[in-house]
């Protein structure tokens, strides 16, 4: 009987969705601070990550589900109120109509959504040789492998293209991208951004920071979830043990110990 149960368990693991792998290349797996049961974001890294997004990604990629106020919220980069206001006011958004019925431009406020680089998806496509730069708000959750995958793609550009792969104009080889072809030119190099907090702006560091930022953007309540989750699991463990003791006591009435 035990053998059968074992087989079932193995079968269950075997059929789990993670095992239906299509991408054979093993992804890079940096040590993310937000992994594991007690995972937390590194604030400084998130703040640097926002800088990378702003200076490198934002010219093509929208993040339309985020608002500037999110940057100051708990569990995120936690910029101060003043910093968030300053960040927002760098952008212009259309508002209106005013009392004369005209639309007008005004500086963004913390309550506004991130400004889109393009007016619509078609404009984005035309500006990028037919490839639509995906919205990055939930990108990390929308890719198998999550943060590891996005990080791997950022690090996966190589100069020498393996034999048998021919690249058209405007297409680049990427070791980790599904299908190995990507229309985005290598976005991050050593020194792509200049960090003000003294962190070495290596390619690796920049990629790590921006991926941490994107992970937070996709799952802004991650820290709260893990914290609550830990408490709930401990609570339920205690309650289950108590429940089991009570059950034993009650059943002793008809099943005296042998």
């Amino acid at each position: 009987m035990k053998n059968i149960l074992k087989t079932l368990i193995i079968a269950l693991i075997f059929t789990s969705p993670l095992n239906s792998a299509e991408n054979k290349t093993k992804l890079l797996e940096p040590n993310w601070t937000f992994d594991g049961f007690f995972g937390k974001f590194d604030r400084a890294s998130l703040q640097r990550g926002y800088q990378v997004y702003k200076e490198v990604c934002a010219s093509c990629h929208s993040m339309s589900y985020l608002s500037y106020r999110n940057l100051g919220e708990k569990g995120g980069p936690e910029f101060t109120k003043q910093e968030v206001k300053a960040i927002a006011s760098q952008y212009e958004i259309q508002d209106g109509p005013n009392q004369e019925g005209e639309m007008f431009m005004r500086p963004a406020r913390p309550s506004d959504k991130f400004v889109n680089p393009y007016p619509n998806a078609n404009a984005a496509r035309v500006a990028n040789g037919g490839a639509y730069p995906p919205d990055m708000s939930v990108l990390v959750k929308a890719r198998k492998g999550g943060a590891d995958y996005v990080y791997s793609v950022l690090m996966g550009y190589t100069e020498d293209v393996p034999e048998g792969i021919s690249l058209e104009e405007g297409v680049y080889y990427n070791k980790y991208m599904i299908g190995n072809k990507i229309r985005m030119p290598k976005p991050i190099n050593d020194g792509s951004v200049e960090y003000t907090d003294g962190t070495q702006a290596t390619e690796e560091q920049i990629s790590k920071d921006v991926v941490a930022f994107l992970t937070w953007a996709a799952e802004p309540h991650l820290e709260e979830r893990k914290k609550t989750g830990f408490k709930a699991v401990v609570y339920l463990l205690i309650l289950t043990i108590l429940g089991f003791i009570i059950k034993k006591k009650i059943w002793l009435r008809i099943e005296p110990k042998v």
Binding site: G229, A232, V233, L236, L239, G243, K247
Partner: peptide, 17 residues
Amino acid sequence: LVGMLVFILIFVAVMMF
């Protein structure tokens, strides 16, 4: 109750982590 608690425990662990 014991069965339910064990089930809820597993469920909560998966949902939260």
